[in-house]
Design a protein around this nucleic acid. Sequence first.
DNA 1: GTCTATATCCAGATAGAC
DNA 2: GTCTATCTGGATATAGAC
Lengths: 199, 199
Amino acid sequence: MPYLLRTVPDPEPLDCRILTAALELFVDRGYHNVSVHDIQKRAGVSIGSIYNHFGGKEGVARALYDHLLMELDELIDIVEQEVGGLRAQCNAMIRRLFGFTETHRYMIAFVFDAKHTEFLSESVPINRTRPFVRLLGKITAAIKAGELKPIAPVVAYTLIFGSCVRLVNLRLDGLIDDPLMAYFDELTDTVWAGLATAD
Amino acid sequence: MPYLLRTVPDPEPLDCRILTAALELFVDRGYHNVSVHDIQKRAGVSIGSIYNHFGGKEGVARALYDHLLMELDELIDIVEQEVGGLRAQCNAMIRRLFGFTETHRYMIAFVFDAKHTEFLSESVPINRTRPFVRLLGKITAAIKAGELKPIAPVVAYTLIFGSCVRLVNLRLDGLIDDPLMAYFDELTDTVWAGLATAD
DNA sequence: GTCTATATCCAGATAGAC
DNA sequence: GTCTATCTGGATATAGAC
């Protein structure tokens, strides 16, 4: 077929189509309310292909999960190269998280809004995965270094990220109408005001 | 039978047995990984009874959900009668939440750790339910009254309760070894330090 | 109201042609 | 590798005895 007649863009690779279809369905309906047939229909592929590529529904979910956690981990790398100091790095993470909540809604919802242990057999709680353990580690180090008030690291961790993840949840659930960036300064200023060292 | 020979205590009413059995199973395995047969076996009743009392699995979950939300709402009543001022009231709520996390693990987990919209048809997100809307309302009023720094109420809401709910999640997931009360002072002091009015 | 036995349905998974 | 057609298990739900 002549090149100029090819009005249709190159189709996405089959496994990508499966993953995006599954991601949207899992987030919209919840993992257990989605069947392999649903994924197959939405992705426009056959059941056989899904089993060939991923071994089944759980395999699709696991591929998504691993991939997204890896991307989150790489995000920490990027932020670490960009700026220094815990406060600046955390703020940069939060800024990106808020941004992605608007632009990559499904990915954020799948990572931060799902109970993975309920559908991924032998998966650890998300707070034990690499990126989250890493963040907690950075906070622990910063407290040791006197960058933060000397409190239990896990308390600082939940203050910084627990509150902003909750904002993300509220936004994804439609309880907040404005893009989250509208709240960025208020949130971070207030958090860090509380966490600042006394002197 | 002579009274003194009745070593066995009066059996719990049948519907209570069903509810407690279901609660534990839902929390331990997740709603969708529990069958009506599982509940029936653990409660020591027949399938028929479950359908008679609750109309099915979803009915059991809804009864649990409604009941626990009502109790949470009553808890706010109690706290309001006990103390005055937003800070004292919120702290009292958090103190009780932390206490219940140790003593009523399953109830807390079912309310704060489950995605109810995935198994209760036409249920609103938990943050739209009465107790949570009420808390947000109290924060809004306190900001208007100058009790808190003038920031968006939803930001104050997530700072106060988002962080402490995240601590509860971490505790329930086994990522925190100590009872949460160990962190109460650090958490609340830090939060309110950030939220205090400037003057 | 409570129980057992049974019916019905649908999801996950596979077989085998192409 | 991709597809369609099919199998099988297990879940919800019901029927009907007690």
